[in-house]
């Protein structure tokens, strides 16, 4: 019975979207960790993406509401360790980002090339040119950097590797 509820919650969470990336759900983002029962109810573990991401509170509320619509005795547990990493974003979600004009994080976590002062190649999500320019490491949201394509001249967001 509880296991069925957990399965149903898992399925329902596929409809809970990230408010800043409305074409991606919280499961694809890798924000939902374990879903388990502790006797008192169902616990959904959420890992925040950035410390100050204003979407985290909204996401936690949305996840709770979705879970409680299936199982009244549900609650959220915020898990900080291990820290969220862009490595947890699914491959399918990365493709969706690209289709929506956002260059997805590439390779494994910590954007070492940038941090070591080297600019890594982020292909333009629109024309696929590798001739792009980092305008600013800080973009429209905490998770994105601002780039411009030198080929098609289009500005675009890049989801930073963390």
């Amino acid at each position: 019975m509880v296991n069925e509820a957990i399965q149903a919650i898992r399925k329902r969470l596929l409809d809970v979207m990230d408010p800043e990336l409305p074409f991606l759900n919280v499961m694809e983002m890798g924000m939902v960790r374990e879903i388990y029962t502790d006797g008192e109810g169902i616990v959904i573990q959420i890992t925040p993406t950035y410390s100050g991401c204003p979407a985290t509170d909204v996401i936690a509320d949305d996840v709770l509401e979705a879970a409680q619509s299936i199982h009244e005795q549900s609650r959220i547990e915020i898990i900080r360790s291990p820290a969220w990493t862009t490595d947890w974003i699914t491959e399918e979600a990365k493709k969706k980002m690209e289709r929506n004009g956002i260059a997805p994080p590439s390779g494994q976590s910590a954007d070492k090339a940038y941090l070591l002062g080297k600019e890594r190649v982020i292909p333009c999500p629109r024309c696929k040119s590798a001739e792009t320019l980092l305008v600013s490491a800080f973009g429209s949201t905490a998770c994105k950097a601002h780039y411009q394509c030198k080929h098609c001249m289009e500005p675009f967001d890049h989801f930073k590797c963390i």
């Binding site: 925040p48 950035y50 410390s51 100050g52 991401c53 600013s136 800080f138 973009g139 905490a142």
Partner: peptide, 20 residues
């Protein structure tokens, strides 16, 4: 503009850290 966004983003990270 880019600096406006950068400084605000850094502030946001710091607020998040302080909350925790």
């Amino acid at each position: 503009l880019e600096e406006d966004i950068a400084l605000s983003n850094i502030a946001l990270d710091l607020i998040g850290q302080s909350r925790a």
